[in-house]
Amino acid sequence: MRILHTSDWHIGRSFHGHVTLDALAGVLQELALQVRDNEVDVVIVAGDVFDSATPAAACYPLLSRSLGAIRDAGAQIVVTSGNHDSSARLGFQSALLRDGIHVITDPATVGVPVTVDDGHGPVHFYGIPYLEPTMVRAVWPGVTLRSHADTLDHAMGLIRADLAQRGGRSIAIAHCFAAGVAPTPQLERDIQQGGLDVVPLSAFDGVDYVALGHIHGRQQLSERVRYAGAPLHYSFGEADKPRGSWLIDVDAAGEVTARWLDLPVPRRLVTLRGPLDELLADPSLDAHHDDWVCAVLTDPTPQIDPMRKLQTRFAWCATIKLDPVGVPAASRITYADRVRDVESDDELIERFLTHVRAGEGAGERERELIADAVAEARVAELTS
């Protein structure tokens, strides 16, 4: 059987204030073409279908069209909910979908597979929706569920028990942070990167392949445990991670082989670093005119209207970060801390200038002008 493992579509997520629906629609259309060209039998979406528990109206048609295109390409689909999804809303959507599209959102169904047959017999797809321990204790009374790791361990126990009776090949689908994942900048919220919510790989023993979601970059934890990542880049921290999905072949004995299928990147992401004037003038940066740009400005003092200036050259400059070169760490304290103990107006203005100039206070002539201005203001107060 041939399976395409994808995850974390995050329909409705914006990118630094820019809508991503059209870009995602194009990428998912390409994914449907890959399903057809590679004669895929089943497509897995391992959680975080939507970016929000309350998706905007435009998100639902995109999901329906994308799932329909994949189904038309010849594959069945197994979808599970992630920590960003509302299981109730996603589950309601499932009743409106076509045959062959299976949406798993109910914890009570864990251990009951979606079974798809091929020439070698059945393959059982065990979907595990995102399991918040405090929400599923009522589903499994008497079971100790202190952490996400506890809930996944219990869910996999139910799966192994069911599989022992059914026999056949098996795929588990989960949305979690598994032990062994490389450190991830800007890790998704709500599932911790450390502590009790890390799920040990041993929890997934007993099945032939584990399709994981939650991490936005492709990762292989073992030959049979993998993350596919997101189909779009949703942060500059992901810029160096390829976008795509795993094409999984499961033979008659349950042995797994995998290869990566790249998806197109609608707009590249690049981080440019340097003083503002250099970024605006350097001819070697012309190639980034149509890229998403994160500009890291190294000017020692803040620049005037930098975003407007950058966007005249880089139309898709999305964000600016400040990392002044040569500025001592002590100059980076907050403004509130800097002015908390001031005793005079002159000192307040001096500290304000020190803050906005990243450590450089007023010059001698500026101090004279400040003193004159403060004196004039005091006279005006007394005579008003």
Rank of each mutant, 00 (worst) to 15 (best):
R2G: 13
H5N: 15
H18E: 15
G26S: 08
G26T: 06
L33F: 12
R36M: 12
P55K: 04
P55W: 09
A69T: 03
R71T: 03
R71I: 04
A75C: 11
V78F: 02
N83P: 09
S86E: 09
S87F: 03
S87M: 05
R89K: 08
S94W: 01
A95L: 06
L97N: 07
V103G: 12
I104S: 13
V112R: 12
D117R: 06
D118I: 03
H120Q: 01
V123Y: 08
G127E: 14
W140I: 01
R146C: 05
H148K: 06
L152T: 06
L152V: 10
L152M: 15
H154P: 10
G157V: 04
D162K: 09
R166P: 04
G167Q: 08
G168H: 06
R169V: 07
A172K: 14
C176I: 08
C176R: 02
C176Q: 15
V181G: 13
Q193V: 10
D205V: 02
V207E: 00
G213T: 13
H214F: 05
G217D: 08
E223R: 10
A230S: 15
P231S: 07
K241F: 10
G244E: 00
D251Y: 11
A258V: 01
L269K: 08
V270Q: 02
G274A: 08
D282V: 03
S284I: 00
D286I: 06
H288I: 00
H289F: 13
D299E: 03
K309Q: 14
Q311R: 15
R313G: 15
T319Q: 14
L322F: 12
V327R: 07
I333P: 00
R338I: 02
S344M: 02
E347W: 06
L348M: 15
G359C: 02
G361C: 00
G361W: 11
G363Q: 12
R365Q: 14
D372P: 02
